[in-house]
Structures are given as structure tokens and as C-alpha cells.
Design a protein around this nucleic acid. Structure first.
Lengths: 343, 343
DNA sequence: CTGAAAGCGCTTACAG
DNA sequence: CTGAAAGCGCTTACAG
């Protein structure tokens, strides 16, 4: 059995002192040439820059951070226990965050939380390892947000919170859901069922709000018995579907693709065809149902852009710039075969 | 529109000098009490520790790192463009990595790669932000691995490589696949088809090897026309399924759940029932097919444990301990309704 | 057992 | 425009 041991040979990197010495200037001058701060002649500046380029000198960011009391790192907090349907969201937004951070010479540290525990986040903050934090899934009662607030650590929520004191960037779920349902109402449907997940997540409440807004705006009576929430289990979804078919709902709007997937399965088992006997739409297009036949009408959000923007706002805020308290991103309504309106 | 601006008030944290002053000892002594290195009387050690505890002093890890030329960070490199079926693997292993790192007072930095580009990784390495790297998906030709080798940065591959010079920790795909296929052969089947994804990924080659080994060990003739690889598109999977049904294969083994999902759909469309007319098994259980009826026989791996172990090996290596060149983790063979053998 | 001092690799008032 | 010096918050030979 072959084994390895790290030689720990320090591959010595060139430092600012080396550069200064080689050029016969002070470290101060080198530092200024690089940062662009302070007066320096264009001539020496160019000399320094050329030397750096030629000798591949990279300032040590850690040392720079120590001197400036910064880390040039941000933390991304993601749930360690999310289910399949949420993964694309985290994956894509993560990608956007990393790219945006990278462009600003920042790096992102990963913090996973389990069961609403914030110990990992606490450790990272206590260790001074980050300049700010991105929170990614917001619970109605969010311990991480509370913790960061009392520690007065800069952070932004990639999501929505009713707490106006929290910086937030989110997809405009409410407007999207409202438009989707409004279109259905305009097409003449009235019995539009809604099946949603846990109300512990802010996003589910937001989506529901959009649904309600559609009815209010179009002045259509809303039948509360067609709304089913907290349907986390397959069983509760099944109950909901049964009640909705019995109530002769024309369409079932699912709050996310996980629920939609269950609904489709249940309908198939009961030989209820989509869209003829029951129309279906989903509030979130997760690629989980990409290959479903018929294709499912749904709302499409650009999660990568959301991540990038969230990161941008955080970095601006960290740098002392003024930022908007809340930013909402657009959506796309994709009409597919599972619904009949607007055809 | 409400806006925010960061006050940038430095919430001053207590430093080692503060502690030293308060206790009337030197910084050296405080440092020693904390690190446990160097001689120090049990008495003063306890005094320091008590004070620290009482006043909630946390050493600044960044400063410690500067002095020791360490960062106490590792980087995790993940593909920015993975598809749904791979996400649970990354999510779960990530969780394992984060937990293990946390326990060793290390943090993990996220690096996403796009199209085999290593620029983000280069930046992170150049910036001295990490002590080591975990590579998570291995291509047959892996640029990230090459880069890290020539820079002699400690790294371990969470996966398999034929390069014996690379530290690796992986699930034992080969043994798992071998056992699965062997059991089928022992039950009397002979026509066992294989449909796999891109051979650019090492894991797909490894799985195929297990399949071949099963035939060799049981001394069964292997019909090469039953093997279909590089089936990345739905079309190629469809072709493969058609050929396999025509060839009267008794079972189709899918290299992963994405392929399995396509296969199931194609079989359904052609009214071929599972397992009566065609048995199905998958080499990787990704929860994607969790609710499929019939449930799919497959191999189960503990990705979180894989992540944790990979991280552990990296940290040991970084600390100069001797580590095994290659470590393989077990698997579980889950027999479900989609196959008939062993019942 | 304990401490003064130098050092990690930067930045930044301050002085010239 | 440029530099010497102090400082960021730690660690670690070295001396006592």
C-alpha cells in the first residue's frame, strides 16, 4: 500500500521587500504603485508594474488584509439538508455568486447549516474570516439573520424577509405568480387550486400572496377551500389533489416542482389526463420536470443572475457604498402544453 | 426607495495584547497557554485560559496564519455546470467536507470551474488563500490536477485517477458494479446490457470496468454489442434501448440515474413493462428515481462520508502526516422491484 | 517557566 | 514625489 507524506518544502514566493530591493525603492513606493493610492510618478509606477509583471509577483492578500482589517472573503450560508428540487437553485446562484466575487477579487467561503443551527456561522465570524455574509434560504424565523444583526456583520439575504432592516435581493415571485394566475383568470377559469409547501419558508408565503393578488386585482371571488399549504408529504399532496378534483378545479397551480412532480404522479395513477381533464402549472421551473410530457407551464427565474446581483450588493455595501434596501429581479412566464389558456 | 449604507464602525475585538496586559504577562505567555506549545506553568496557563473564557477572547486566525504561513482554509473545486443528477453528490459530499473541516478549525472556499478552465483556481492559489485543495470530479484529462501538481500544492482528488501520484479517495464503484452484475449472472441471466455516459469522466470507465470484471470472474462470455457508452443525449439512449430490446437483453444496467430515467421513459413509451419484460438497475442511486414505480435496484454510496474522509486525508497530508495514496469506501447494493434476481 | 524582540507581508499616517 | 517607521495580531527562536 503506497503512502504519501507532504515534504512541506516552502515554495518561496517573492514578496514586496524583494521587489523594493530589486528596484532600489521603498516598500511604500511599491505598495503605492500597486494600489494606485497616494502620489507617485508615472515613471516609477510603470517601472514597478513592469517588474511585477515580469517576475510574476502577487501581493499576499492575507497580509494585505491584516493591515487593512479586511479578509476579501464573504461567506455563503446554505442549508446542508435541502432536497433535490432546491438543488438547482443553490447550484446556479452559487455559480453567480462565485463569478461576481471573483471579478471583485473576493472569495467565497462555504458554510452549511443543519437544522437551523448557526454554530458553523458563529465560528466563521468569530474567526474573523469574512467581511460579509450571504444568507440563502429564508425561514420566517431566521436565526442566522438574527445572529448577524446583533453582531452587526454586513449581510444580505438572497430571498425575502418582512424585516425592512435586512438587505434583500430576490426573484420577484409575487409578481410572477400574480401574472400567471391572472392570465388564467382572464382566460375564463375560476376554479384554480393551489398546492404549496411549508409556510416556514418565506418564499412559499410570497408565492401565495401573488396568487391572492391575482384574484383581488381581477375582482374574482377566491374560494379558500382550493388552497392547500404545508403539503410537505406525499400524502398531504394526495389529499389535496383528491379534494381539488372532487371540487372540479380546472387547474392546479403547484408552488414548486417537487409538489408538481407528486401531483403529476397522482393524476397519472388516477388516469386524469393533463391538460384535458386538469391543467397544471408550476411556480418554479427547476429542470426537474424538463422532460415531462406534457411540458409544464411555469415561471422561470434566472438564479445565476440572482446570485451575482446579491453578491454585488453585498460587496458594495461592505465597501461603504449606498445600496438599495430591496431589489427584485424579473421572471419569465413559460407557457407550455400543460395549460390551455392564451392559446 | 429605502437605501442602506454601512457605517463601517469597527466593532473592536479584544486582542492578545489586551489579554497579556490585563493579566500582567507577556504575549508570548498568552500564546503558549493557548497553543499548548512551549513550557508554561499549569498555574498561569489556567489563569490565561480562564480569562480568555470569561472575556470571550478569540485569537485572530488570519494573524496566526500570517505568522505561521498557513491559512487554515482549503478550496473545494466543483463544476459550475453540473446537471441535476449530479447535484446530490456535490451537495452531500460538500456537507461532509464542511463538517470535517469545521471540526479541524478549517474553512472551505468554493471554487467553481466552467468548461475545464482553471483560472478561478489559479487566482485562489496565487492569492495564497488556501493550504490545500479538494478536486471533485475527475476528467480523464484533468487540467486542475495538472496545474496543482506543477505548483506542488497539496491536493486530493475525490474520485479516481490512473495517475498514481495523485492522492485519491473514492467510492468503490468498481467493486459495487461488479457485485451487482455478478449477482445477475449468478441468477442465470446472460444478456445484460450496459448504457453509460461520457467516457471523459473517469467514473464511467471505472463502472464499466466493474461490469467487465463480473463477466471475467464468472467466466461468462461478454457480448460487446450489449455495451453502449457516451450516451449523453436522449437520442443515443433511445438507440441503445432499441438495440437492446431487439437483442432480447434481459436486463439493462444504467451507469447513472439520468440515463436510467431516460431508459424508463423510453420503455414506458414503448409499453415495455419493468421488470417483467425488461429488468432495470442503476449503478448510482441519486434519489432522482426515489419515487419511481417500480423502485429501481441500485448501488448506494455514502457521499457525505466520502466528502468527510477526503477532507480528513487532505488535512492530514497538509499537516505532514503520512496518508494512504488511495482509499476506497464501501457501497450498499439495494435490491428493489425493478429486478428479479435473488428473490 | 517567562519575556523582549524580531518577524510574517503588507499598509499608511507622517515627515521631508 | 518618496521613504522610514509604526502597526495589523499573531508566533517563535533566543536568552535568561
Amino acid at each position: 500500500m503506497e503512502t504519501f507524506r507532504n515534504d512541506q518544502l516552502e515554495n518561496k514566493k517573492i514578496t514586496i521587500s524583494d521587489v523594493a530591493e530589486a528596484l532600489n525603492v521603498s516598500k511604500t513606493t511599491v505598495s503605492r504603485a500597486i494600489s494606485g493610492k497616494g502620489r507617485i510618478s508615472e515613471d516609477t509606477r510603470q517601472r514597478v508594474l513592469d517588474y511585477i509583471e515580469a517576475n510574476d509577483y502577487k501581493p499576499n492578500v492575507i497580509a494585505k488584509g491584516l493591515a487593512q482589517k479586511k479578509t476579501f472573503n464573504i461567506a455563503l450560508v446554505i442549508p446542508g439538508d435541502c432536497n433535490l428540487v432546491d438543488m438547482p437553485f443553490f447550484q446556479n446562484s452559487m455559480q453567480g455568486i462565485c463569478e461576481e466575487a471573483s471579478e471583485n477579487d473576493y472569495d467565497v467561503m462555504l458554510v452549511t447549516t443543519v437544522d437551523d443551527s448557526v454554530t458553523n456561522l458563529e465560528r466563521m465570524i468569530a474567526n474573523n474570516k469574512v467581511d460579509g455574509v450571504i444568507l440563502s434560504r429564508s425561514m420566517v424565523k431566521d436565526r442566522a439573520a438574527e445572529f448577524l444583526k446583533e453582531q452587526s456583520i454586513p449581510f444580505v439575504l438572497m430571498g425575502t424577509s418582512k424585516d425592512k432592516g435586512i438587505l434583500q435581493v430576490d426573484n420577484d415571485h409575487k409578481a410572477g405568480c400574480k401574472e400567471l394566475v391572472s392570465r388564467m383568470l382572464h382566460s375564463g377559469m375560476t376554479k384554480i387550486g393551489l398546492i404549496g409547501g411549508s409556510r416556514s419558508y418565506v418564499v412559499n408565503r410570497t408565492r401565495e400572496q401573488g396568487y391572492r393578488d391575482a384574484f383581488r386585482t381581477t375582482q374574482t371571488a377566491l374560494d379558500e377551500t382550493l388552497i392547500f399549504e404545508n403539503c410537505d408529504e406525499n400524502d398531504s399532496v394526495e389529499q389535496a389533489v383528491k379534494k381539488l378534483t372532487r371540487a372540479k378545479a380546472e387547474c392546479i397551480v403547484c408552488m414548486d416542482d417537487a409538489i408538481c412532480s407528486s401531483v403529476l404522479q397522482i393524476l397519472a395513477e388516477n388516469d386524469i389526463s393533463v391538460p384535458d381533464q386538469m391543467q397544471i402549472a408550476s411556480f418554479y421551473d427547476s429542470t426537474l420536470l424538463m422532460n415531462n410530457k406534457p411540458a409544464i407551464t411555469s415561471l422561470l427565474f434566472d438564479d445565476k443572475a440572482l446570485g451575482a446581483l446579491t453578491c454585488k450588493v453585498l460587496l458594495q455595501y461592505i465597501q461603504g457604498e449606498e445600496v438599495q434596501g430591496r431589489t427584485l429581479l424579473g421572471y419569465e412566464l413559460i407557457q407550455r402544453e400543460s395549460t390551455l389558456f392564451g392559446k
